[in-house]
């Protein structure tokens, strides 16, 4: 084999799929920018506006801190209640959706219901509850219960489906009623993972509880919305800092709890 013959050999297999995908994404990006009416001029105006906005946001104004604290506390309450009730509701839902415990005619519709709960953004659910049951924290709690069910019940059902069938058969073989099967064979195997899901959902609910107020469902979001509408941008930045701080602390705390339960 001479070097000259080597030169004609194919060094790389051409990756047509990759090239087509990359080209398509590039073309799409250009098209989408123009479809969304994004021009260099608009970008330049936007930059100027952005600079002015940041200028008005700084320094953050914490003068109205009682309002801020009140909103944060309400968000926290919404998150706690929605998590507690959502977790409570997810336990039976998860059991009903587990295909190794339930016949298909129970498990499949339950799964559809859970998937339905997950399909809508919590804010959309919140807005519906606001329209149905009026403004306030109650609508927020209800919306986040729906979101929690969609998430935890699904993971819980999956965890139950992964459990070892042996203890299940052993308890069933002893002629135990269904409740005993659940308590002695299912729960011990999935409880530790359930705590993890619940913590994750608490984090997630805390994030969303700061948002549902934007549509009138209580919490700091309402304060934020009002501040935006009145162009109080220095208060807006104060609220945002407070939200980020609260969520950050929440993450640290849930990290501690997770370690305590490991």
């Amino acid at each position: 084999m001479s070097a000259a013959a080597g030169a004609r050999r194919r060094a790389f297999a051409p990756d047509w799929t990759g090239r087509v995908v990359v080209a398509a994404i590039a073309l799409y990006t250009l098209y989408a920018f123009s479809a969304l009416d994004f021009s260099a001029q608009r970008f330049a105006t936007g930059l100027g506006e952005g600079a002015r906005l940041i200028g008005r946001m700084l320094p953050p104004n914490f003068a109205r801190w009682p309002l801020l604290v009140e909103g944060l506390i309400e968000s926290l309450q919404i998150a706690i209640l929605a998590s507690a009730l959502g977790i409570l509701a997810s336990l039976p839902l998860g059991l009903l959706a587990a295909r190794n415990l339930m016949p298909g005619w129970v498990a499949v519709p339950t799964r559809f219901f859970i998937a339905f709960c997950r399909s809508f953004h919590p804010v959309i659910v919140a807005i519906l509850f606001v329209k149905a049951i009026g403004f306030g924290a109650l609508a927020g709690v209800a919306a986040l219960i729906v979101a929690s069910m969609g998430f935890i019940a699904k993971l819980f059902a999956e965890a139950i489906e992964e459990i070892s069938p042996k203890p299940l058969e052993a308890v069933r073989a002893s002629g135990a009623p269904f409740a005993a099967v659940v308590i002695f064979a299912v729960m011990p195997q999935v409880m530790s993972r359930f705590v993890g899901f619940a913590l994750y959902q608490l984090d997630s609910n805390l994030r969303n509880s700061t948002m549902v107020g934007l549509v009138g469902a209580g919490g700091i979001g309402g304060t934020l919305d009002a501040a935006f509408k009145r162009f109080d941008y220095d208060f807006v930045s104060a609220i945002l800092i407070a939200i980020i701080a609260m969520i950050f602390i929440g993450e640290i705390l849930s990290g501690w709890v997770r370690r305590a339960f490991q």
Binding site: L36, R42, E49, L53, N208, M211, L214, I243, I244
Partner: peptide, 28 residues
């Protein structure tokens, strides 16, 4: 990263609507 995740997309939307005006660009 934490700041980006902690601020909900709706709040980001409010900010960008203030910067670029209402519309899909602010949304993206």
């Amino acid at each position: 990263l934490v700041s980006s995740r902690s601020v909900n997309s709706l709040v980001w939307a409010l900010v960008f609507v203030a910067v670029f005006g209402p519309g899909a660009l602010a949304g993206a």
